[in-house]
Every structure is written in C-alpha cells, then in structure tokens.
Design a protein around this nucleic acid. Structure first.
Lengths: 194, 194
DNA sequence: TGTACATCAGTGAACGCGCGTTCACTGATGTAC
DNA sequence: TGTACATCAGTGAACGCGCGTTCACTGATGTAC
C-alpha cells in the first residue's frame, strides 16, 4: 500500500486542511484524531507517518488557516480604492461566522482562548497570523505616519477578533448582529484622520 | 458524614468558585472533575450531590466569574471622576492576565472560544456578563446620547476582550504588551466626543 | 427535651468510553545493480 | 531496461490512560413523636 512521494505529500496537505476546518468550527479539544483522519478518508494509524503529534498538527493547521484567511481577504480587495478596501476587509472579517460557507475562518477569533493554552509552536504561528492581519489593515489606513497606522491597525484587529468571538458566544442572533454592527461603527471611527 | 444545610451550601459555593478559578486559568477542557473537587478539598463522588453535570458547573462558574470581575471593577472606581473611572476600568481589564494575582478574570476574554461551543445556559450567562460590562463602560462615557454610549461601549468591550485574548496567545511578553498598549490608545480615541 | 428513625453530604472504588498513540502487517514505490 | 530487495504510506486492532458519571456505603444531621 505504499504511495508515491507526490501522493504522500498530497495526503499530508489534505490532513492539514481537513484538520484546519474541523478545528476552527468545533474547537481543538472537541476534534479527535479519528474525526480528522476519517474526514480526510484515511484511518487513524496513518497520521503518525506525517506528524509527530496532535500538537504539531494544531500548529500547522493554525498556520494554514491564518494563511488562507489572509489570502482570501487580499484576493477580495484587488482593484479597490484604499477606503473601499478597508471597508471590505472589515465587513468580510466581521461576517466570517455569520453568513458565509465557513471557508477561511480566522483562527484567532475562532479558537483564540484554546490557542493560549497550546505549545509555543502553535502560539507563534497564531501570533504571526495576527501580525499579518495588522500589516494588511495598516496598508489601507489613511494616516500619514506608519507607526500610527500600525498602532491603529492593532487596535482594529483586537476589536474585530473580540467582536467575532463575542458574536460566536451570543446565543441570540440579534445580539450577535448588534455586537458586529457596533464593532463596525467603532472601526469606522478609528479609521478616520482627525 | 452528612453535613448541615449551611455547611452543604458553603461546599457548593466553594466548588463553584474553585472551578471558576481553574477554568479561567487553564481552560474548560483541561480541567477535570477530580482537579476541581481535589482543589476544593473534596472527592469526586460528592460533586453530583450539588450539580447535575460538568456543563451545569461551567455555566455557574462562568456566571460567578463574570459577576466577580464586574464587582471588582465597580469597587475600584468608587469616588473617581467619570473620565478617571473609565481609565481605571480599561487599565484593570487590559492588565488582568499580566500583572495581577489572577483573581477576578473575565470569562469572555479567557475562555471565550470555548464558551462558544458550550450549551445554551453557559452562553446565556456569558452574554449576560458581556452586557453587564457594556453597561458599566457606557456609564462612564462622556457622550450625550445613551444609544451612542451603548454603541461605543460595545465596541470598547470588543476591543478589550480581543486584546486580552490576543495578548494571552502571544508567546512574547513584548508583543503582548504592545497589543494591550495599542488597545488602550484605541479606546482613548473611542471615548472622545468629536 | 429525649428517643428512634429517615435523610442525605461526602467517600472512594468502579463503570464505560473515547482519547492520543503504538504496532504488526500489507503491498506498491523507490533504489541498486 | 529488468530484476531483487529495501522502503515506507496507509491499515486497523490494540494499548494505557483519564475522562465524566454512578453507586454502595458511612455516619452526622434533620424530623417526628
């Protein structure tokens, strides 16, 4: 049953992206190895040919998710004006768990609390995702000084991540919506040059 | 070994507050019944005289933590001016997992992602905590219109919760500090009347 | 107030279960000549 | 290019473990008379 090198590489990739989706939607603790391997059309035992542990997979899946989410945002704003691009980023980010098909979710907002108890690899990867998002947002802020843009972008990312997390907790759809709407208004204020 | 009614009530309270501390510091999944009961100087079996399940305890512990955190904030600001009180609230909230002895942590920031996968009771309780915090913040904003204060307070709470969560993930103390500082600056902007 | 009995808070062993991980095995792929 | 053998991707049963929960038991508390 040995597979060719390219097949094996494809399997590895499939495991990471399958795990990534499951983790973001159900949480790290709630998803077992059998769930992941089964969803990737494999059996449990094969996992350890590719990864040393669940912890390693968590780190890689988090990185994959962060990269995917950032790429999706970047793709949506090509050709838009700076102001419109910022609006698009914020709208997509805030709407990630409400409307869409749950592709490209942000690990920070979806499993942030769980990540903080993970090993250093996972936390480093998540922090890199955070920095990437801050960088992206900062590129579309209208302020002159770059440090000021980074500072504001950091605040905006905290607001977005917090709002999505809070909206995910709210059992009532109306409350979730108001949290997200208020975050959007808030961010609009932060994006202004006084 | 039967205990008097008041002893039993004290035991119940002790279980909830012990669980609350463990949950906030280590996460819901990482803390088992034996951990909780042991930390409360009891054995596992006694738990079910007081609670129907771990899920029920999670809901109650979340409520206890939220109430305790709110009460601690309210206590710190008595006698302060409106502007100073807001500053105090934000500073204490943002510093909750850095400096202090980890008493009265906010469940939303510490275990938010895990709460979103809990049952309705826990999520309702957490949402109530969120509303309480928004209410508290709104009381110290300088804006004329109450709806405007609530809207801004909601954004500020999202920012604070997101920043604390992000800072908890960051493996590097410096990054954590910059996230919190930027959140503080951000909130100062949001607290202004234009 | 004193006595007899029912109640039940708390104990600690045990239950079933699913977890992450290991392992012997299979057979196609890769390598050496 | 063809052959012989080593490698190793993937299988699925099994392992040990700790989880949430149950249960028979103990003995002090609460209740009824």
């Amino acid at each position: 049953m040995r597979r060719s090198r390219s097949e094996a590489a494809a399997t590895r990739t499939r495991i990471v992206s399958t795990a990534s989706k499951l983790f973001l939607n159900k949480g790290l603790a709630a998803v077992g190895m059998r769930d992941i391997m089964g969803a990737a059309d494999l059996t449990q035992g094969g996992f350890y040919r590719h990864f040393e542990s669940k912890d390693q997979l968590i780190a890689e899946a988090t990185g994959e998710a962060a990269g995917r989410a950032l790429a999706a945002l970047r793709k949506q704003i090509v050709g838009e004006s700076k102001a419109k691009a910022l609006e698009t980023i914020v709208t997509i980010y805030l709407g990630q768990s409400q409307n869409r098909k749950k592709t490209s979710l942000c690990p920070i907002a979806m499993i942030g609390a769980e990540l903080s108890h993970c090993d250093e690899r996972a936390r480093n990867v998540a922090t890199l995702g955070y920095k990437g998002l801050v960088q992206l947002v900062s590129e579309y802020l209208p302020h002159q000084s770059e440090p000021e843009r980074i500072r504001r972008a950091s605040g905006i990312v905290s607001t977005m991540a917090g709002a999505v997390m809070l909206a995910n907790i709210a059992p009532d759809r109306g409350i979730a919506r108001s949290i997200l709407t208020n975050a959007k208004t808030t961010i609009r204020i932060l994006s202004r040059v006084e």
